[in-house]
Nucleic acid binder design. Sequence first.
DNA 1: CGGACAAGTTTGCCAC
DNA 2: GTGGCAAACTTGTCCG
Lengths: 86, 86, 86, 86
Amino acid sequence: MSEPGPGHNTVAADQLKSIIERVERLNEERKQLLDDVNDVFAEAKGNGLDVKALRTIVRLRAMEPNKRAEQEAILDLYKHALGMLV
Amino acid sequence: MSEPGPGHNTVAADQLKSIIERVERLNEERKQLLDDVNDVFAEAKGNGLDVKALRTIVRLRAMEPNKRAEQEAILDLYKHALGMLV
Amino acid sequence: MSEPGPGHNTVAADQLKSIIERVERLNEERKQLLDDVNDVFAEAKGNGLDVKALRTIVRLRAMEPNKRAEQEAILDLYKHALGMLV
Amino acid sequence: MSEPGPGHNTVAADQLKSIIERVERLNEERKQLLDDVNDVFAEAKGNGLDVKALRTIVRLRAMEPNKRAEQEAILDLYKHALGMLV
DNA sequence: CGGACAAGTTTGCCAC
DNA sequence: GTGGCAAACTTGTCCG
């Protein structure tokens, strides 16, 4: 006999369907939020602001917390890099 | 003297601040949703499913049928030219 | 006295410097080669070829046949389960 | 009539083959360089150095030139973002 | 539509 | 050998 119903080599279609649809649902929400972001920028542009500069500012601000920690850690990094030789 | 407290020229700065913060707020929500997606895939992986294949399915389903067929046609054309197919 | 000119403790620092610079040198060469690859694809595009398909071909050829067949099998399995194939 | 020899709808197999092989050749060189980098780190590790810290240092040093420019540009960015309102 | 910029996906490496 | 972190590659989007 060969594969009637859920057997080996078969995937639970329901489970698969559920996963895919959950992800697709989440992706729709993500797309909606992306549209919202673009709306904000479009409105800003309508007010005479420079959208490219705004995007850059957002990006830089997202980086800064990490950079702070990096700068504080850099000397320690060199020490560790020098390992037991220090 | 210029700019003690909320004066005429803070308008632009306030507007800028508002835009940046709105976008950052939206980006946080986007990151949350991305985490959710990854959680779903992680759970699927725990159930023995192949995450890479799942991502491919999601991508294919999101693709317009025409685009998809077109891409496959070009690929087959090149494969034939290279003897990678009969 | 401590560290005037090349003394006993500069050994570690020199070693560190040497390692970092060797890696950075190699990374520059890597970047150059990446640029070369992109140049080839850009030229191909100029000749009317589809770069995306070309990249796919390169990826498929780099893949071990077994792996490739395995990936396709899983994908087909999922597609069937979802009714995306006959 | 149906495509004998190089006709429309056909790809110049020689051209295709040449492109693919050039890219594959470059990719081999890239892989070789990546191996070289790993060799340097492996040797460093053998000398008691902390490879993870070394990698971090390389990464930070690669970022710094960009950061310099960013810091110099950030105020200008705000000015541009404020556009004609300034 | 072409080039730049950003997002997402994949791969590789190190620690456990 | 698995899982998390970081780098690299690919794809998509947006502005000019």
